[in-house]
Every structure is written in C-alpha cells, then in structure tokens.
Simulated scan of single mutants.
Amino acid sequence: MGYSIFEKTMADMTWQEIENASKENQIVLFPLGVIEEHGPHLPLGTDIYWSYASCRRIQEELNSKGERALIVPPYYWGINHCTNGFQGTFTVRAETMKAVLMDIFNNLHDWGFHNIFCNNYHGDVMHIRAILEAIKVARSEFGLNVRMLIDFYDLNRIGLKGDEDDILVLNPDYPEEFYTGMLESERGLYDIHAGGYETAFMKYCFSELVNEEVAQNLKSTSLTENELKQWGEGGESTRSLVPLGYAGNPAGYRNITNIDYIEKFTTEYIVRQIIESLND
C-alpha cells in the first residue's frame, strides 16, 4: 500500500477519466475518518489511513467481480468528542461537517454518479450521526443512492434499527479463525482505540508509521463497561482515564498473525453486500 491516501483515488485521475466513469455509472466509494491522537505509537491519521486502505481493497475486489468503482479523495475533518482533550485531535462542528459532506454529494450528483457507499472508520457517535444526516439530505434532495457501511454491533448505540434505507448493515458470520491471537486476559474488555487490532492493521498496511518499539512496551488499558462510559465523556475525563491516549492493548498486535486473512474475509463480505444491495 502506498503512503499517500490520494493514490488511486479521484485525486490522481483527470477530469476526462471522471467523466467517463460517470457515464459508465461506476460505483463510488467514499472513505471517511478523522485526524486524532492514537497514543504514543500510532499517527494521528490512523482512522483515515484505515478507511482509505479498506476502500482500496473493496475497489479491487469489486473490479475483479466486473463492477467498476472509483474512490473519492478521503474526508478527514470529522468530529472528535472522546479524544478532544489531546493535542493533535482536530474536531469540527457538526453543522460544518454536514455542510461539506452535502456539497461533496452534490458535486457527485452533478457529475452524474448515483451509487455511493460511505466507508467510515471512526466510532464517535456525533461523527456518525453527522454523516447520516448529510446522507439523508443527499438522498432526498439529490436523489442519490448514498448508503453508509455500518457494523451490526454499532446500531444500538447510534439509535438505529438496521432497516434504514441510508445504511448497509454489515454482520458477517466470522469464523473461529477470526479471533486467533486474542489474549485471555483481554476477554470481556473493550480494546477500542489504538489497541492491538488497530496497531496490527497499521503494521500490515503502513508499517513505516508504527513505532513498534514503543507499542511493545505499552501496558493494556482496555476498558471495562464503566470505563467505557467515562471514555465517552471526552475532555479531561477521558484523558485522566487513559493518559497516554490509547484504550486497548497495543502490545497485543504481535499475537494477531492472521490480519491478511481477516481483511480478505471482510473485504469479500462487504463486496457481496454492496453488489446485492444494487441488485435489490
């Protein structure tokens, strides 16, 4: 995977190539994330790197199935409520974010695109709701088929039922191999931010951006149910809970040796869901 999150996106295409893609009614993949602290071992851009890399794999898998797709330049000016007490965490107002996203959707509509799938890799509820509100406007005012990919386990905390037209629910039946590498001491805890899996993923796709020497010596700060509530308070409350800015077990990345299998399985599942949604 290249270093630039613009590589092989619309940013590297000519306007004529965009015009031809719209005439072919190509699928549009839209990576979304944020710039926020990710502990002392990962870069601020971890979420958007992850979202971008995921879109690249989805694009390649769609193309292999005969479905042409292109990628919007990544959007990373999002909302960070939980980690806003740390330097380097950028956050924008919800109305600002929604306005920019609606303008982007309007552009895509004006260029002739119709099927847009938003791939967000940031779990802040306020951030996700801003995306969904912009999508609702794009669907009603521009007539676009815009949907957000969303994991089944996120539905309840966002206040969704799962049958909404503006989302595509992901609920794969993960095989047992998916959980290889999980430490017994971590079971029942929440590794949600800059922990084992996120560190493993970054090592897999952007190894030059991971400080392994630091990661290997970090103690686990995976959260209990009560601590998860404190994490959600943001500001100094979150910072007092996790002073170094990570909520998980970064050193556990060394035990996750099947990252390629996990990503391949997940990508193939997402592509099947996208294709099925277009044929409904």
Rank of each mutant, 00 (worst) to 15 (best):
Y261I: 12
L101F: 04
L170F: 15
L29C: 06
Y179S: 08
Y246K: 02
G85S: 13
L241G: 07
S54D: 05
I192V: 15
A69T: 00
S207G: 13
G162L: 06
F178T: 12
E164A: 13
G196C: 15
P243G: 10
E37I: 01
H193A: 08
F117K: 05
I18G: 04
L168R: 02
N120T: 05
G252S: 12
L132A: 01
V271G: 02
L218N: 11
H127L: 02
G45W: 01
V146S: 01
W50S: 14
P250L: 03
Y174E: 10
A194G: 13
E164L: 08
E37D: 11
L149I: 05
G234E: 04
G245Y: 03
L218A: 12
I116D: 01
N80D: 05
L170H: 11
S240K: 09
V146M: 02
I270V: 05
D166G: 09
R239I: 02
S185D: 14
D166N: 13
Q59H: 08
E133C: 05
Y246G: 06
Y121A: 04
P43Q: 12
Y153N: 11
L42W: 02
Q216Y: 05
R272Y: 04
H193Q: 09
D191C: 11
N25T: 03
L168K: 03
T91V: 07
E236R: 13
Q273Y: 09
W50V: 08
G78T: 03
T91L: 03
H41I: 09
R239S: 09
G66S: 11
N84Y: 12
D165N: 06
A130P: 04
L170Q: 12
W231T: 00
F178P: 00
M97G: 01
A53F: 02
A200V: 10
F6P: 00
L189A: 09
A194H: 04
A247G: 10
C55H: 03
D151C: 15
G2M: 05
P74L: 09
Y174F: 15
N171Y: 12
G88A: 10
Y204D: 14
G188M: 03
D165G: 03
S240A: 11
L241H: 10
N20G: 06
E95L: 06
K161Y: 12
G159W: 11
Q216V: 07
